[in-house]
Design a binder for these strands. Structure first.
Lengths: 131, 131
DNA sequence: TATAAAGCTTCCAGTAACAGGAAGGTCAAC
DNA sequence: GTTGACCTTCCTGTTACTGGAAGCTTTATA
């Protein structure tokens, strides 16, 4: 199949597919006589997996490790554990959530008249607001 | 004062200070005979404000608007409302939190044996895990 | 006084994960 | 035969910086 079909099947744009190839996340596909990329069924599976990971906001580097494409490894095997991948991502997400929680509180506090006048954050923002 | 002192007072690196100048967030400072940048007290206040906004993860473009440095405006006035700035950021943060919440649930579900076998996400990940 | 270290300058490259667009070749349909 | 869709490569831009090179000046030390 050509790149447009792979794109449709995986919901990943042609642009992104070429990008993944460039960074070594997808193997270089065969080429037709006219130079067009030719993909196989296994490419659909591999790219679908990548797509799902990206939906989970797992960084490309992490996905690369699990797919075994790093360190000159020619992207053949699946040696690492998907569970670890997911667990690591869950940790990142939890951490990010905690940070956003704190941010939300600070912002809400600033909007609610900034009761905590001891906060330097508050003071500076208000000084400049009064300007 | 020289750039290192401004840096210490505001907790913003010299590198970042020059960057802010480059993108027009800070006005071009006076120069000493040797070419060194020379800053005033008002630069401390302006940069502190920027620093506080960045702590709140407000994008530089938003800060720029509030400080009135856009559209060739020479960075003199503070015309817009800090409240709006904060409210807009609060909205962004809330939205991001909701997304992370959903992500966390999905990831947790995947770790907990992926009960929802109907999810294509689950299936694909598990197929590849079994591989 | 010599020299080394610290601090300043400018400019260039890299980060994450693509998207947009230019310039040009190819293929199918009308 | 020509329009339009699809393919190719290459280059730029995005956000908010950080790191580093090359080359000044200034300050501290031996």
């Amino acid at each position: 199949m050509k790149i447009a079909e792979l794109s449709k099947l995986t919901q990943v744009t042609s642009k992104t597919i070429r990008y993944y190839e460039e960074i070594g996340l997808l193997p270089e596909p065969a080429r037709a006589a006219n130079g067009y990329r030719v993909y196989q069924q296994e490419d659909v599976e591999r790219l679908s997996f990548i797509r799902r990971c990206r939906d989970l906001q797992i960084p490309l580097e992490e996905i690369k490790k699990v797919l075994g494409c790093d360190h000159g490894n020619a992207c053949e095997g699946h040696n690492n554990h998907v569970d670890d991948l997911i667990a690591a991502q869950l940790e990142r997400v939890k951490k990010a959530k905690i940070e956003l929680e704190a941010l939300e509180q600070t912002l809400t506090g600033l909007l609610d008249g900034c009761d905590d006048k001891n906060s330097s954050q508050c003071n500076i923002l208000h000084n400049l607001r009064a300007h």
